[in-house]
Design a binder for these strands. Structure first.
Lengths: 241, 241
DNA sequence: ATTATATATATGTATAAACATACTAAAACA
DNA sequence: TGTTTTAGTATGTTTATACATATATATAAT
């Protein structure tokens, strides 16, 4: 386990990558401390300063927590969405080393309801791609997504049926968007959602409605997310400007 | 324009604050470059390394853009993804034109529980101001707040008992803070909350935990908010950097 | 005039060293 | 036994220094 000092890739970047892999190791998962900075640095044959460059980045992303006089540990793997970081769901889970299981995927091509067509600024007689996904940890599902895509995304649905499944599942990677508006609220699970999320009717659900726009601020996706309350926390960091 | 080298506030934090003010100056607004790192550093009588600590933070936040061989400029001043929703409750309701009724106000002076003392970075044997507020529309309450204030806010509790009520009720206006971190989740109403909000036990609640910091990023308020699900939506607007 | 080439400038990377501060745990003390 | 002191450990802050690399500009060669 060491770095390539000859590589053109800066050492602090290499160290960062290595740390990202390292913190996925179960051995650091339960609040156990990482080795101290000086030891890691000497192990990697880099200076403490350089190592700290790498650590700082992960701390900023909320993956690591440092405490003076104590040490550095991996942040609790509770699922959070930092609006600042703009990580997609899959990316965030990957970053935290949480294995994601896809329980259901439903791709359909539908006439949009009026309020959806309204947001996407299209007519209701034009079919669009509807994507339903049920995802979670191996133990069980914890989120149910429904997405509607504007035709200009190129995701017309017809083509997507031909794509391999895993390609579609990883789709959120590819949608490069600029602006999103979200509405977060709490509601109780109805029969449908309770069934999907394997919980009881009436149990609390964190409901997220997301409006996604492209670089030109044209609407491209309308997304609904139903999160099991006990497995999702939404975090927001804001600064007075 | 210089820093206080005697202050307990670290120089890179002071530099960061100063830069935040600096970049608001119209003189840097139209893509014009800041002075170079070495000049700023010598101007502030700190090392380049320390200055870069401050600069890096603003770069991370997308406020500054650096280019090797060229210089550092202020990023286009579009609505920062972080300045989302920085309205206080009263302000927000006012903006929405909703008349607010205060149902209950409870000012007390308590020994903080450990996790609160921990966040506020004080000891548990030091009394602090606890403020409980039940608010809503004329028809009925829809939010229950609990706030704990750090002594350095000056809200020691003792003084506040002497203030007129309306003054305390409008207090959130006066607390000028810089940074806040919020965690939003859904939960069910327990007996206490259900009673306060005049709803049923088990009904969905939007729960918001808020950590508020001052300009030096020292904790000043710990705030809990319980919102009746059917009357509150949390909105977030974010922009990719 | 156009194209190389050198040079100045600004950020990027990396190190070693020293001291400060928060926290923990062991040792000394009452 | 319980409390205080002390030493040890880990992160936090800061500096001074050196060289690397990307960019823009001025200079020299074609």
């Amino acid at each position: 386990m060491s770095l390539n000092h000859k590589s053109p890739v800066p050492l602090h970047i290499q160290a960062e990558e290595l740390l990202r892999k390292m913190i996925k190791d179960p051995q650091f998962q339960n609040g156990k401390l990482l080795p101290n900075e000086i030891d890691i640095a000497s192990q990697l044959a880099i200076s403490r300063t350089t190592l700290r460059q790498a650590l700082n980045k992960l701390v900023y992303e909320g993956l690591l927590i440092r405490k003076k006089g104590v040490g550095t540990k991996v942040a609790d793997a509770l699922i959070s969405s930092k609006s600042v970081n703009w990580l997609s769901f899959s990316q965030e889970m990957k970053a935290r080393g949480i294995p994601i299981k896809n329980f259901e995927l439903h791709v359909s091509w539908i006439y949009p309801e009026e309020h959806i067509a309204n947001f996407l600024n299209i007519k209701t007689d034009q079919k669009i791609l509807k994507l339903e996904r049920l995802r979670g940890r191996p133990e069980g599902p914890f989120v149910y997504f429904v997405s509607y895509f504007h035709p200009r995304t190129g995701l017309t649905g017809e083509e997507d049926f031909k794509r391999p499944l895993y390609d579609i599942l990883e789709m959120d990677y590819n949608i490069v968007s600029e602006l999103s508006k979200e509405e977060i609220s709490a509601r109780s699970a109805d029969k449908f959602i309770a069934g999907k999320l394997e919980t009881e009717v009436g149990s609390p659900i964190l409901f997220r409605k997301r409006f996604v726009y492209d670089q030109a601020e044209r609407p491209i996706e309308y997304n609904l997310g139903y999160y099991k309350a006990d497995s999702f926390v939404y975090t927001v960091e804001s600064r007075r400007g």
